[in-house]
């Protein structure tokens, strides 16, 4: 059993600040982390390894410093780590990214056949949820997105049953290996890395694949050149045209009364809607 987990190193966006005047990102000192959604993917792979044994290869396309994120994954129990890095990859959108990852995965599959590929639901910086589907289409593997649980995995029969989050409920799907699974957050709880794991990860080699090693045939499909989309503009949120009316009152009670009075004077239809809504709720309550 061979499982690949695609992870991405991302800036910890909870700590990103935007310069209030220039609207530029202040990146200094923002720590890089493994995309939190990818940890659910890794944990699910580790659980399969615990239960029935598997080799787990983590890979990422990114700059040299993304090695730290891969090492983190090794410390949790991944067996092999590959950093796909080359100057020509920079500026990639999701289409170019999935091209590079799919090429690398094909190369990896030729070394040791892949049964499953996991990705996170989405990244917290790109936030697109497109790379997983992109990989599946390019490889011609079955695509199982928003998976909340793996019900059954039968490697010999090449069969997998998963629960997939759909809009109005949960789909139970039966599919075949190899498949690409994008894992839903909250599907499991990430384990802690133990001391031996951390020592092992520190010593272990992170392989580096450049364009050739990754088996990339068409240079026109990677990086900026291979990206059909481009960011044309970045802007800050626009303040509302009208300024907020400040409600005054000496006491909380006076302020509250003044607000309700003002609100329903400015928006009388809101009071009508509210009364109608309350009547409807009362009707519903009476019926049930």
């Amino acid at each position: 059993m061979h499982i690949a987990v695609c992870i991405k190193q991302v800036p910890d966006s909870a700590q990103i600040r935007v310069h209030p005047v220039t609207n530029t990102i202040m990146r200094q000192g923002v720590p890089a982390i493994v995309n939190p959604f990818d940890l659910f993917a890794l944990e699910e792979a580790l659980r399969i390894k615990d239960q029935s044994g598997a080799t787990i290869t983590v890979l990422t396309m990114g700059p040299p410093q993304a090695e730290d994120a891969l090492r983190k994954c090794l410390s949790y129990g991944a067996d092999r780590a590959i950093l796909i890095t080359d100057k020509v990859f920079s500026g990639a959108d999701t289409l170019a990214t999935s091209y590079v990852l799919a090429s690398a995965l094909r190369t990896l599959d030729a070394q040791q056949p892949l049964d499953l590929i996991f990705t996170g639901k989405q990244t917290i910086d790109g936030d697109t949820a497109q790379v997983g589907p992109g990989i599946a289409i390019r490889l011609g593997y079955q695509l199982l997105t928003y998976v909340s649980a793996i019900r059954e995995l039968n490697v010999d029969a090449r069969q997998i049953f998963v629960e997939r989050r759909a809009e109005g409920g949960v789909q139970v799907l039966q599919s075949t290996l190899p498949a690409v699974i994008t894992m839903l957050e909250g599907a499991n709880e990430m384990r802690f890395a133990d001391m031996p794991g951390m020592f092992r990860a520190a010593r272990q080699e992170v392989e580096r694949w450049d364009r050739e090693a990754a088996g990339i045939a068409d240079i026109k499909q990677v990086g900026l050149k291979g990206s059909p989309t481009a960011v044309a503009q970045v802007f800050g949120p626009k303040p509302k045209a009208v300024k907020a009316v400040r409600i005054e009152g000496d006491t909380p009670v006076a302020l509250a009364d003044a607000f309700v009075e003002r609100l329903f004077t400015d928006f009388p239809q809101l009071e009508d809607a509210l009364l109608d809504h309350l009547d409807q709720l009362a009707d519903l309550g009476a019926k049930s």
Binding site: S13, A14, I16, R17, N23, I25, T229, Q233, V234, P237
Partner: peptide, 12 residues
């Protein structure tokens, strides 16, 4: 974009 701190416009 950037965790929602900014907006961006994307073209094809």
């Amino acid at each position: 974009t950037f965790g929602g701190s900014l907006m961006c416009t994307i073209v094809n």
